[in-house]
Every structure is written in C-alpha cells, then in structure tokens.
Simulated assay, not measured.
Amino acid sequence: MFVRKEKEKPVKNDVKILGVVVTGTAENLKILKEQNYIKSATLGVVANKY
C-alpha cells in the first residue's frame, strides 16, 4: 500500500520534486542549456580516488 495507507497509489498532489541528478557528457548535457524548466544547475565531476 501507498505510504499514506488509505490510498493504493499516490496522486499528483502527493508528489513533490525537490531536485534531480542528471549525468552525462558535456556534449549530452548541452541540450538542457536554456530550457525553461531548468531553474538552477551545478556542473561537477566525479573521479576515482586512485
């Protein structure tokens, strides 16, 4: 059962999106530039320690 227990599944108003993580190459991510649904963005990098 859904977390609120009185429902089988959530409805639109039950869902809150706080943020997302998008991964890809710089080339792949270029398509997101200037999109009106992007409110803010941070570009970072992930590297192996060794």
Rank of each mutant, 00 (worst) to 15 (best):
8 E>W: 00
34 E>M: 06
33 K>Y: 13
49 K>D: 00
11 V>R: 09
40 S>Y: 05
4 R>D: 07
14 D>P: 04
17 I>S: 00
3 V>K: 04
5 K>M: 04
3 V>A: 01
17 I>Q: 02
32 L>P: 04
39 K>C: 04
8 E>C: 03
9 K>V: 00
15 V>K: 08
21 V>F: 11
45 V>G: 13
9 K>R: 08
17 I>C: 06
4 R>W: 04
42 T>P: 00
32 L>Y: 15
36 N>L: 13
22 V>H: 04
34 E>F: 15
35 Q>R: 15
21 V>A: 05
15 V>C: 10
9 K>I: 01
45 V>L: 11
37 Y>H: 05
18 L>P: 05
8 E>A: 00
30 K>G: 08
5 K>C: 03
28 N>E: 15
12 K>Y: 10
26 A>N: 14
16 K>W: 03
39 K>P: 02
50 Y>W: 01
40 S>Q: 03
45 V>M: 08
3 V>E: 02
49 K>W: 05
12 K>Q: 13
29 L>T: 08
13 N>V: 07
29 L>R: 10
5 K>Q: 07
8 E>Y: 01
29 L>V: 07
36 N>P: 15
12 K>R: 15
25 T>W: 12
23 T>V: 10
35 Q>A: 14
27 E>T: 13
36 N>V: 08
44 G>V: 07
44 G>K: 00
32 L>V: 10
14 D>W: 15
16 K>G: 01
25 T>E: 14
21 V>T: 08
48 N>V: 04
39 K>A: 02
29 L>F: 12
1 M>S: 04
43 L>S: 03
39 K>R: 09
20 V>Q: 05
27 E>Q: 15
11 V>I: 12
34 E>H: 11
27 E>P: 06
13 N>E: 14
22 V>K: 06
27 E>R: 13
22 V>R: 04
47 A>H: 14
10 P>T: 05
27 E>Y: 14
22 V>W: 07
21 V>E: 02
1 M>P: 03
13 N>S: 14
27 E>I: 12
17 I>Y: 03
43 L>N: 11
34 E>I: 06
50 Y>L: 01
